[in-house]
Amino acid sequence: MQAGLIRGFLFDLHGVIADSWQYHLASWQAIAVELKIPWTTKLTQMLPGMSRRDSLITILASVNRQAEFDEDQLLAVTDHENELYRQFVAQMTPANRLPGITAFLDELQVANYPLALASASTNAPAEIERLGLRPVFTKIVAAADLSASKPAPDVYLAAAKLIDQSPQRCVALEDTVTGVQAAKAAGCLTIGINVKQLPGADGMLSTTADLSLAAVQRVLGLPTV
């Protein structure tokens, strides 16, 4: 793909735009305490990018307790986690934007690229509002309407549709393995943002502070314009 054929940018939220994973981590750790389940480094590494239900199943499975909960009980716990998380969201401000994100979004807007938020979180609109980015992200995937969460491609297919572009002409920005899998399954050119290599990503940047149009073109091997 040539640089001129990039027609839009699709953004994950947690770990790409905002430093909000810390809040999910805190709420899940609180749930683990309530359930008397020891928290481990492995859980911290596994949960990013997972749906709320999958996160709970993973926590329960870490101590082989998943069979103790029926669907209604699982829903009650995930709803509780969401309430805890929303309390954290209420404290968010533009200061929670990750380094370099504001300048990169400004650059994309000046270049007239359409943008969409490809988050599977039902809290995404509230978070974008708290971050002061509602004028930038007028296109946000309705997470409640998705039939499958990441690593399924649904959220990226929906995001590309919101900006009337084919996924193959969109650059997706992700920070997790499951997120990269979702974006690639949708057909997007995908940049992973992580100090560790994310398998399947078309290009990597170690931090959001490195984001720019020139950096996107460089890591994707595209000619500069």
Rank of each mutant, 00 (worst) to 15 (best):
Q2D: 02
P199R: 09
K150A: 12
F9D: 00
L108S: 03
L117H: 00
S121K: 07
D79P: 13
L25T: 14
K42E: 13
A152S: 11
V89R: 07
D54T: 15
F104K: 01
Q181T: 07
T138A: 07
R7I: 00
L173C: 06
I6C: 04
T41H: 05
P153M: 05
R134A: 12
S206V: 13
M50D: 02
K150M: 11
Q197R: 09
I6Y: 00
V141A: 13
H24F: 06
E71F: 12
R218F: 07
V195E: 14
T41P: 10
P135H: 12
S20E: 06
L157D: 06
T208G: 03
M204W: 04
P151W: 00
E81A: 14
Q197M: 13
A76S: 15
F88I: 14
V63L: 13
A201C: 01
S166D: 12
Q66M: 02
L5T: 07
D12L: 10
A201D: 11
A76Q: 11
R134K: 13
L105A: 11
A103Q: 11
R218E: 10
L146K: 03
A144W: 12
V63A: 15
A172W: 04
W39R: 06
L222Y: 00
Y23V: 12
L5Y: 09
V219D: 00
P135K: 08
V141P: 05
G200V: 02
Q165N: 06
P151L: 00
M46E: 13
F88D: 03
S212L: 05
S121W: 08
C170G: 02
S149P: 10
P167Y: 05
L211E: 02
D79E: 11
L198C: 04
V155A: 09
L25I: 08
D12N: 06
A148R: 15
V216A: 01
